[in-house]
Design a protein around this nucleic acid. Structure first.
Length: 356
DNA sequence: TATCCGTGGCT
DNA sequence: TAGCCAAGGAT
């Protein structure tokens, strides 16, 4: 019953054991919001330096709204899920233009902003404004499915409803922000995916999974899909000591990031075939493909790639964007001024060595 | 409901 | 080592 998820026990534990984190040293809704977006699917230790750089460079919502897209994306570089960055920027501009620069203080107004889903809305509105809304994230899923030994795949409608009902009933009316953070803190530091330390858990006496000795059996996950490996051929087109780079489209995979031209090697194609096809489609040029600079592999969420980087030159004509994506010639020093995906960035040392 | 969307740390 | 996982949202 309500004893199983006891907000009083949880809050007492949190008061004693919570970690000191940068976004816990402020009540600024903008900073709390920024931290929540960065923390989506991203670990605390990874976020901290990014959060500190952002708050230094953009101390409030209007400062971020006024910033140039490329500068913000460059600061996000390496954090992943780049649509979070694009949506955050869109949202800040709405805050500036439609809310007088103040973060909306009601769930109704806040939840309509780009990149703000059910979790982020509940987290920000409870932590920053004291609204009694229960936030459900991966930690909460794990803690609650264990407390109540919820069988069934955690992403199924029934289990999701059971989890939401449990936290809705338990969330503190007086300290909802701390309640939400306490649930997540418990999941992150005690009720961990592997080898949870039940001896340190304030809710251990009522935990059904522990009573069954099956803590690690929850949450139940669905079947996982195999991830394909795609070969990708890329070109370092060199001319007058400069390198050709292009910007990815504003939507989709790695939106707005810069990269070397090239693309998937289709079945039956040679690497040179693929480079010829891709550079003609994207830039309207026929490359003279030279030696292989090097190769790296990289894993994304739903597929892996093996990148093969080739030296190349273009003869007559100059590369021109055929798909509306900006194109630029840059020096090796400029590589660090633009936002590149990590997979491309892995190739930089090989490239610098090859161009020696 | 299922899939897409990154990266780094951990075991 | 290879897979798992993390303070999710959009479509």
């Amino acid at each position: 019953m309500t004893d199983i998820l006891d907000a009083g026990l949880l809050l007492s534990w949190y008061d004693t054991h919570k970690r000191i984190l940068p976004w816990r040293q402020t009540r600024d809704p903008y900073r709390i919001w920024l931290s929540e977006v960065m923390l989506q699917q991203t670990q605390v230790a990874t976020v901290i330096p990014y959060y500190n750089r952002f708050t230094d460079a953009f101390p409030d919502a209007t400062a971020l709204a006024d910033a140039q897209d490329d500068r913000v994306l460059k600061m996000w570089e390496g954090l992943g899920y780049y649509n979070r960055c694009h949506n955050l920027l869109k949202a800040m501009r709405k805050v500036r233009d439609e809310h007088g620069g103040r973060v909306p203080d009601t769930p109704e107004a806040f939840s309509g902003l780009p990149g703000v889903g059910p979790y982020t809305c509940a987290a920000v509105q409870s932590i920053a404004f004291g609204h009694s809304l229960a936030a459900v994230d991966g930690n909460v899923n794990r803690v609650v499915t264990r407390l109540f030994a919820l069988d069934g795949v955690v992403t199924s409608a029934g289990v999701k409803r059971a989890i939401q009902d449990a936290v809705d009933s338990a969330v503190s009316e007086t300290r909802p922000g701390d309640f939400n953070q306490a649930m997540m803190e418990l999941g992150a530091t005690v009720c961990t995916p592997r080898r949870p330390d039940c001896s340190r858990c304030p809710l251990r006496s009522g935990c059904k999974a522990r009573a069954l000795g099956r803590q690690e059996a929850f949450p139940v996950k669905g079947a996982k899909k195999a991830v394909p490996l795609y070969p990708v051929a890329l070109a370092v087109v060199v001319k007058d000591g400069k390198i050709l780079v292009q910007k990815r489209p504003a939507k989709g995979h790695l939106a707005g990031m810069w990269e070397f031209p090239g693309g998937r090697v289709l079945t039956g194609e040679t690497h040179e075939d693929a480079l010829g096809r891709c550079l003609m489609d994207e830039l309207g040029v026929v490359p003279a493909v030279g030696k292989l600079v090097g190769s790296v592999t990289h894993a994304y969420s739903h597929f892996r790639v093996q990148l093969y980087l080739y030296l190349a030159e273009v003869g007559g004509g100059s590369p021109t964007s055929k798909k509306g994506q900006p194109v630029d010639w840059i020096t090796t020093e400029d590589l660090n001024r633009l936002a590149f995906p990590t997979a491309n960035r892995k190739l930089f040392p090989l490239l610098v060595e090859a161009l020696g």
